[in-house]
Design a binder for these strands. Sequence first.
DNA 1: CGATAAACGGACGAGGTTGGTCCGCTTAGT
DNA 2: ACTAAGCGGACCAACCTCGTCCGTTTATCG
Lengths: 195, 195
Amino acid sequence: MDRLLAGDAERRPRADARRNVERLVDAARTAVAEVGVDVTAHEIARRAGVGIGTFYRRVPSREALLEAVLAEVLDEMIEVARRAMADPDPWRGLTEFATAYVQLRAASCGLNEALGGECGLTLPQLAPLRDQLRLLVGHAHEAGVLRPDVPWEDVAFVLASVTTSTRTIGLRAGADQWRRNLRIVLDGLHAAPGR
Amino acid sequence: MDRLLAGDAERRPRADARRNVERLVDAARTAVAEVGVDVTAHEIARRAGVGIGTFYRRVPSREALLEAVLAEVLDEMIEVARRAMADPDPWRGLTEFATAYVQLRAASCGLNEALGGECGLTLPQLAPLRDQLRLLVGHAHEAGVLRPDVPWEDVAFVLASVTTSTRTIGLRAGADQWRRNLRIVLDGLHAAPGR
DNA sequence: CGATAAACGGACGAGGTTGGTCCGCTTAGT
DNA sequence: ACTAAGCGGACCAACCTCGTCCGTTTATCG
């Protein structure tokens, strides 16, 4: 993350320069979550309270900043998936990952777009995340807790779908709609649903 | 639909004028489905094989054309919901409506966006459609075939979600992914799921 | 406390997109 | 063959975005 600074090593940068990098990264985090991956450099600079000149002096490019910010969250997701694999109860592991995963997606519009692809950003964490999900679903399949006729790709798609619709037919979703949707989907996925 | 012609009544327009209106409406249908509600007037004119001048001579505005085209599909949806209400089996009625509804959404990117709102278009059919869905879900609730802890709004949201994710984590959905997602969701909604 | 280089802000330019108009040319209809 | 209706697309104005450049400010150090 600190590697965003253009000229690394050399000398310690001035205090205001360091402070502004921090502000820019913070602003980028909230901005990409609220606005999406198409958030402009000017908007991030405005939120950070710095000029656009400072933005381009501190950050190699708008893309690099967004990729760095999104990479943080993706790494977190992969870590959650890894921990879920260790759960002795495969179904609980899957549901706990699913909940964390969907919650992160619901909290960040930009992350949601990034996971959907076609946003021009380069995100190397996508493949590892996909692999972890496949393993996790495989686990659940072997334990017989997940419907056998549902391949792991379908799990990826339904989990992705759960966060997307914040409004429909004039209805406005509450902040926890993703949780309600997820419960329905998980019940639909469970091989032995508890009603 | 024919009311799109600016000067109605008066005299019968020339053959080429009538033909071009037809072409524009057809082009708008496919363009809004493939590109979305943000499709430009130039793009529609290009697809219709007419100049941009002809577009604005034949159509009051880009918005009016899109609204007319979307209204057609919305009316169709309302009609399907009405027929579903008449089904003696409330669960079958609900699933048949859900399938048709989701299929229409999956077939049109623009329709999907329009149902999500915030696209600036005025669509009076939204409220009737919402009412029909509420009635249909109420039917299913009374018959005890739909999980009682799921309000009709949740049904709206999960049905909306099913179509949205055509790609995630680097995966590309096939054309029938909506059907696979829908099956999972319907199983999650069913009070007496048949496995 | 200066001196000075680093850092800052934001005006600005280039490039792109969009909705919509206007006018010289074409063509359907009589 | 005449004419009014219609056509195409160059064009315009308004807007937005990225990224640079330069005059001003400020952190740091002797």
